[in-house]
Structures are given as C-alpha cells and as structure tokens.
Amino acid sequence: MTKEKVVIGLDTSNYTTSLGVVNLQGQLIQDERILLPVKKGNLGLRQSEALFHHIKGLPLLAQRTSGYEIVAISSAIKPRPIEDSYMPVFLAAESFGKTMSNLWDVAFYGFSHQEGHIKAGLWSTGVKPSKPFLALHLSGGTTEALKVIPKDIGYEIEIIGGTTDISAGQFIDRIGVKLNLPFPAGPHLEKILENQDLQLLKGNPPISVKGNYISFSGPETHFQREIKEASNPVEIAYGVFQCVARSLYKWIDNLLKSYPSDEILFVGGVASNKIIRSYLQDKLQKRLKLYFGDGQYCSDNGVGIAVLGVESYLDHKKQLK
C-alpha cells in the first residue's frame, strides 16, 4: 500500500511545542501540540526552561506520527525573517528537524516563527494575497504591525509599528495571573465572560497609542489598581479585552495613514479572542477587509511551518524538471 507523502513542520515557541503534518495537496493531516507547563502564579518560563521542555516534548510528538512517507522537514529556526533574529527556544525545532532530515535523507527547510504565523493565518482563511498587505502579530511575546510582501516562498516582512513596553499578550497574562488564573490567562479571562450580558458591563478603560506605537504599561497599572480595590473580576476581564480592542482600533487607524491598505491579517494567540475580534469587525469591516486566522491556528502551531515546507518542496521539484 502506497503511503501518503507529507511534510512535517516543527515549531518550539515560548509557550508551545508543535508538530504539523501536511500532505502535498496542502491538506492538514495532523496537528500535535504540547503546552509548556508554567507554575501557578508565574508569568511564563525562562528560555532555558522552555528549551528543556521542548527537548522532552518533541520525541513525544514524533511518536504520534507514523504511517506516512515523509519527503521533507521544515522548522521554525528564529523569531523573525531577518538576519540577526535569534531566540534559544527555536534551537530545539532546528536541531530536531535537521537531525530527522539527515537520518531520513530528506530536504530540510528553515523559516521564521513569524512567517509560520502568517502562513497559518492565511491557510486557515483560504486567502492567497498576491500584493503587499498589513498584518498584526498579536501574541504573548509580540505586538507588531507588519508590512508583508508575498514571495514565491515565504514573505518579506517590514516592522512598521509595535509596542513601546509590554505586548498585548503580556498585558492580558499579567492581569489574569493577578486574578489567580492559570498562565496563559487569555482563555481563562474569556471564560469568565461566558453567559454574561456584555452590554451591561463597563467598557471604557484607558488606552495609550501614539503614532504607530502602542503601550500597555499604563493600562496595566490601572487594572492592577482595580484588582487591589477588589473590583468585580467580570468587569476587569471585560475591561482588559476592551482596552486591547480599543487600542488596536486606534493603532490601525494611525497605521493606515502611513501605510494605506485595503486588507489586514490578524495572527497570534490574542487575535483569537472573540471580544477583540467582534469589536474590530464592527468598527473596521466597512473600511477594509479583515482576515482573522481560524482561532485554532492563531495560537502557536507547526501547521504554518509545514505548509511553507510543502511549498518549498514542490518548488524544488518543479525546478528539477
């Protein structure tokens, strides 16, 4: 029986060990992930701790993958697609990927974690842009506005805005952990709001946006004070998401003045939040096209890296003909 040809994609971020399996038609076969363990009350892991967990986790994910003809391995080898971009956690995906590539005598392709996010977002929406577009990368460690130029394989990315202090994800996590919620706190804060009438909740928290840059340290101080004053956790959860949503709306408005565009892609774990999505869609959908990656593929995953690997493999085969 002929085995299905697939490409394996590996990603080892600050939060998740990921393995994606995609066939040569671009269809997802497997999506395996292990969330890195964080002790209650802590705000993440040191790089050395995360790297240790990735080294333990990757063999477990590989164990779940069998019965395919693996034709290539692709890995996230750095945070961004620029020369000096580096973060120790990605050494796990790169080392493991290159080892499998050498042992099985198949091609190896390296990409950036950011390219993986963008590809996963576009793949999950079915959008295939042929012209430059804007993207917002919103995650636990990143809040960046990007001008993205599609290439034959991967993307040319220019950072055109960002945060002056903490990321949107860090802001959400710090408030959630202060409320005694597990890390990462975003999904748990969102769960607090289930079955609540959001129209009855206050939603006018302070924001700080100047030009193409955004800040969350001031809003964090505001909500830390609210927690000390024993404010309602439901009000705080809603206020935090409203703060992020309103900040992003103002930020986008500023960005479009400098970088006109008719479409924006949202990727990263924060982009999966339903309250933030709903607010931005309501405010912006008449002005431009908004592409939100499927919630499952907004957070860290190996799927986008695998899809990029498939494209690289097919391109290489084409050139050999």
Results as ranks from 00 to 15, higher is better:
residue 66 S to V: 09
residue 16 T to Y: 00
residue 153 I to V: 09
residue 172 I to P: 03
residue 155 Y to E: 02
residue 200 L to F: 04
residue 68 Y to K: 11
residue 166 I to E: 07
residue 256 L to F: 08
residue 29 I to N: 13
residue 221 T to L: 05
residue 3 K to E: 00
residue 288 L to K: 03
residue 88 P to E: 06
residue 220 E to N: 11
residue 9 G to A: 04
residue 214 I to M: 12
residue 193 L to P: 13
residue 173 D to H: 03
residue 115 E to L: 06
residue 112 S to D: 11
residue 261 S to L: 03
residue 194 E to V: 12
residue 60 L to N: 13
residue 89 V to G: 08
residue 290 L to M: 07
residue 25 Q to D: 14
residue 153 I to H: 08
residue 221 T to A: 12
residue 119 K to R: 15
residue 18 S to D: 06
residue 96 F to I: 14
residue 21 V to F: 14
residue 312 S to Y: 13
residue 278 S to N: 12
residue 137 H to L: 07
residue 94 E to T: 08
residue 45 L to E: 00
residue 220 E to T: 10
residue 232 N to P: 02
residue 317 K to R: 15
residue 59 P to N: 12
residue 134 L to Y: 10
residue 133 F to C: 09
residue 114 Q to D: 06
residue 319 Q to Y: 01
residue 72 A to L: 05
residue 250 K to H: 14
residue 61 L to T: 10
residue 283 K to I: 03
residue 123 W to F: 14
residue 206 P to Q: 12
residue 268 G to H: 01
residue 187 P to A: 04
residue 179 L to Y: 00
residue 311 E to M: 09
residue 117 H to A: 06
residue 179 L to G: 06
residue 8 I to M: 15
residue 240 V to D: 07
residue 162 G to Y: 00
residue 239 G to K: 05
residue 276 I to G: 12
residue 235 E to C: 08
residue 25 Q to Y: 12
residue 171 F to H: 05
residue 20 G to D: 07
residue 96 F to S: 13
residue 231 S to C: 12
residue 164 T to I: 11
residue 101 S to H: 05
residue 206 P to T: 07
residue 221 T to C: 10
residue 23 N to L: 13
residue 252 I to H: 10
residue 26 G to K: 15
residue 264 I to S: 03
residue 317 K to Q: 15
residue 33 R to E: 12
residue 28 L to Y: 13
residue 81 P to Y: 04
residue 192 I to P: 07
residue 182 P to F: 01
residue 71 V to N: 04
residue 65 T to I: 15
residue 289 K to F: 09
residue 110 G to L: 03
residue 259 Y to L: 02
residue 78 K to P: 10
residue 206 P to C: 08
residue 157 I to C: 02
residue 216 F to L: 09
residue 172 I to M: 03
residue 147 K to M: 08
residue 317 K to T: 13
